[in-house]
């Protein structure tokens, strides 16, 4: 189990993380960030496996990826 933390101030809503998330756990928020973009939003349903593909594609380096300890 993992999670991501999105820096919504830095996000510019390009959607590259959204399309590459293999589990469709990222969507664009309906709210606007201070720069006027709809930032990405993490849908935390316990399915994130910390693959980091979102991180690889984020042009704003606005995503942190966390991984749960092995059980």
């Amino acid at each position: 189990m993992g999670k991501i933390i999105i820096n919504i101030e830095q996000c510019k809503g390009c959607k590259l993380c959204v399309i590459f998330c293999p589990k469709q756990l990222i969507k664009l928020s309906e709210k606007l960030n201070p720069a006027g973009y709809h930032p990405a939003e993490f849908i935390d349903n316990g399915q994130c496996n910390s693959c980091g593909l979102c991180y690889q594609m984020c042009p704003d380096v606005a995503i942190e990826v966390w991984k749960g300890e092995k059980r």
């Binding site: 993992g2 830095q10 510019k12 910390s50 984020c58 042009p59 704003d60 380096v61 995503i63």
Partner: peptide, 27 residues
Amino acid sequence: MKKIFSRPESLTAKRNIYCSGCGHGIV
């Protein structure tokens, strides 16, 4: 939980001015 991907030390915390979806930020 352990952080496995995050901003590298060699990158400042500053928000970049590139357009949405620009490749420069990745490079």
